[in-house]
């Protein structure tokens, strides 16, 4: 006890836990210590910051200009589209609207449609974290698009969708007459993962399909599934889907366990 403090102050008020060594076994918030029975302020503020990052991610927007700038080297036409949700608030409460293109966007897609069909339509959508797509999609596509073009696959125009859900790839893929729709979309942010991106591929995209018709690659981010590993899985899924003419559970996942579908 410092002698220059008043008699009733013996410490900074919080009591540490003598089992911080257990933190090496888990990323869970253990051995936080306590102030009385409450969480010490530093931990409380750390939690608040993590939640702030997650909230900011939910309300972030697709940086379409920067994404298109970084992807124009592939020479694909680009479409800037919107779902029927008109605000984030509405998007969060009405998942059905996030699965459908608005009228202007639908016409825009129909306007670029020709007799041509494509092997794959790539779609980028904000989902629940546009930040994830802004951050990870350019690097991932820079790795995967050249290999697909070199393998001789034909690619539909690239779509960028605001307020989009996974199933909007069914409508876009089908309008573009693509055999496979691949959507890169922000996943529901966790406290430690505000920038997690998901990739869903759907063979013969058609309005009304459900999630069991899709394959999913989840948690794409440097601290989760690396770009290289994600590209490896994605190329495998694309090859198998186009070869077997299907997607969903019938395609064996390369990983040991099935990826779950977060609520997007």
């Amino acid at each position: 006890m410092k002698s220059d403090l008043p008699w009733f102050i013996s410490s900074n008020g919080s009591l540490p836990d003598p089992w911080t060594s257990l933190q090496r076994f888990t990323a869970a918030r253990i051995a936080l210590g306590r102030s009385g029975v409450s969480i010490p302020l530093s931990e409380s503020l750390g939690f608040r910051l993590a939640h702030a990052h997650a909230r900011d991610a939910v309300y972030s927007s697709l940086d379409t200009a920067a994404l298109q700038e970084s992807l124009h080297t592939f020479g694909l036409p680009m479409l800037t589209l919107q779902s029927q949700a008109t605000s984030r608030q509405q998007y969060l409460q009405r998942p059905d609207l996030g699965r459908k293109l608005n009228e202007a966007s639908r016409e825009q897609v129909l306007a670029v449609r020709t007799q041509k069909t494509y092997d794959i339509a790539f779609i980028l959508a904000d989902g629940l974290s546009a930040m994830a797509v802004n951050t990870h999609a350019p690097a991932l596509l820079a790795l995967v698009l050249p290999t697909l073009l070199a393998d001789g696959y034909t690619l539909a125009p690239l779509s960028f969708v605001g307020h989009g859900r996974v199933a909007i790839s069914d409508e876009i893929g089908s309008l573009l007459q693509a055999r496979l729709a691949v959507i890169l979309i922000g996943e529901r942010p966790g406290l430690t993962s505000p920038d997690s991106m998901g990739i869903y591929s759907t063979y013969n995209p058609t309005v009304g399909l459900t999630d069991d018709a899709r394959n999913c690659i989840s948690n794409v981010r440097p601290a989760g599934l690396s770009y290289a590993a994600a590209v490896h899985k994605l190329r495998y899924l694309i090859q198998e889907s186009l070869r077997l003419k299907l997607s969903g559970v019938a395609i064996k996942d390369l990983s040991e366990s099935g990826d779950t579908l977060p609520g997007i």
């Binding site: 918030r29 936080l32 306590r34 969480i39 430690t192």
Partner: peptide, 19 residues
């Protein structure tokens, strides 16, 4: 622990909350 479920990715109550 700390109201943060690192498996289900949501926030529940903490051990401290119960105290």
């Amino acid at each position: 622990p700390g109201a943060d479920d690192i498996m289900l990715n949501y926030q529940s109550s903490s051990f401290h909350d119960a105290l």
